[in-house]
Every structure is written in structure tokens, then in C-alpha cells.
């Protein structure tokens, strides 16, 4: 339900470890709403989302990364400061920020304020956020938007690596993700593809 409007109902899907799910549908179909619902940022009117075999005491949201349209960066902070905050605050297994910046190709400008970054660079920095803190479930909303071809290929590699480590990915997307994924199409005519 969004603003008193029913967005979707009757959805039933499962994602297992090491696999990805691509959520497709036309604009306004509710892709973002579905991701936010999984992330616990939207209340579900009915039904629920369950993670089997995670760390028992944590909620699903506490074991998930959410990469949304808005990049959550503070322009006044440097690239490195932004990244370190997202390593230290949310909670999870931390890893080396240098390596993460290397992986997205931002290590050379780690000392610059985020205000100077282009849209693509901001997106890369957001992606580095996924790498610097290990959480099993990645919720990605149009992850490849604003990325150039090389960036998209590199990101596909990162996603493949995450899946190989037993992670899960649910991504809302219009284009191809670059990794093998089952597709869930949502829209006014509901047709859940398992």
C-alpha cells in the first residue's frame, strides 16, 4: 500500500544463497517499494519476508545492504570519511576500505570531498559501501544507473564474487544485470515468475 493505494499483492518468491533475483516491471510498478519493503523501510500491509539461516537474532534489515536512488553521501565529507562511516556505523564484518576503493577505482581521490564527485563516481562510492562491510543480502535499486560500460562490467564482477561467497542479491532493474539471475516481473497484471 502506498498513499492508500494498493501497489502489489499475491507476490510469492524465494531467493536462495548464491543466486540473484532481478525484479523488473514498468515505471511505477512497485520495484522500489518491493525493495524497501524487504529492507524493512516500508511496512507490509500483509505478508512477510523471511531470511532463513542468517544470524538468528538480527532482523533481515540488519543483515542487508540497501543501495537506493539516493546515494546517502555527505558532500562536506571526503570520499574516505563517507566510506569509513558506512563501515563503522551499520554493523557487520568490516573489511579494508582501501581495497574497496580500489575495486571501484576511486582510490586516487579518497581525500577529496564527495561534493566534487560526478554522478557515476558517487554511484561507485555507494557500491564501495557494499564491499567495505559484509552483509549477506544486497538490495539494489537500479544499481547500474549512471555507470559507464566499464563500470557496469566491473560491478557485474563484484556481484558475481558476492554470489560466489554465498550472498544473495535482489535487484530492481530495467537492463541486464550482467550476471545469471531469475526474473520476477511485477506490474498491474500480476504474474509472479518463480
Amino acid at each position: 500500500m502506498r498513499g492508500g493505494r494498493e501497489v502489489f499483492c499475491g507476490l510469492d518468491f524465494a531467493v536462495s544463497a548464491g543466486t540473484a533475483l532481478a525484479v523488473t516491471g514498468r515505471n511505477g510498478a512497485g520495484k522500489t517499494s518491493l525493495l524497501r519493503l524487504i529492507a524493512g523501510l516500508l511496512p507490509a500491509a500483509d505478508g512477510k519476508v523471511v531470511l532463513h539461516g542468517g544470524e538468528g537474532e538480527l532482523t533481515l534489515a540488519e543483515q542487508a545492504h540497501y543501495l537506493g536512488h539516493r546515494d546517502a553521501l555527505k558532500p562536506a565529507l571526503t570520499v574516505m570519511e563517507n566510506l569509513l562511516f558506512f563501515r563503522d556505523f551499520p554493523g557487520g564484518t568490516m573489511s579494508d576500505p582501501e581495497t574497496a576503493l580500489n575495486a571501484v577505482g576511486l582510490n586516487a581521490i579518497a581525500h577529496l570531498p564527495a561534493a566534487y564527485l560526478s554522478a557515476g563516481q558517487r554511484r561507485r562510492l555507494s557500491i564501495a559501501r557494499l564491499l567495505v562491510l559484509r552483509r549477506p543480502l544486497w538490495l539494489l535499486d537500479e544499481p547500474t544507473a549512471a555507470l559507464d560500460a566499464a563500470g557496469q562490467t566491473a560491478f557485474a564482477g563484484l556481484m558475481a564474487h558476492h554470489l560466489a561467497e554465498g550472498g544473495l542479491i535482489v535487484a530492481a532493474t530495467h537492463g541486464p544485470l550482467g550476471i545469471p539471475a531469475t526474473t520476477l516481473h511485477i506490474g498491474p497484471a500480476i504474474e509472479a515468475v518463480p
Binding site: R70, P90, G91
Partner: peptide, 14 residues
């Protein structure tokens, strides 16, 4: 809330 970091604060383990 505007830049999206509130979502991440809410999803934190704190």
C-alpha cells in the same frame, strides 16, 4: 532523509 542516509541509519544494528 533527503540524501537517503536515514534509510541506512534505520537499517543499522544500533
Amino acid at each position: 532523509s533527503e540524501d537517503g542516509s536515514l534509510d541506512l541509519l534505520v537499517m543499522s544494528r544500533t
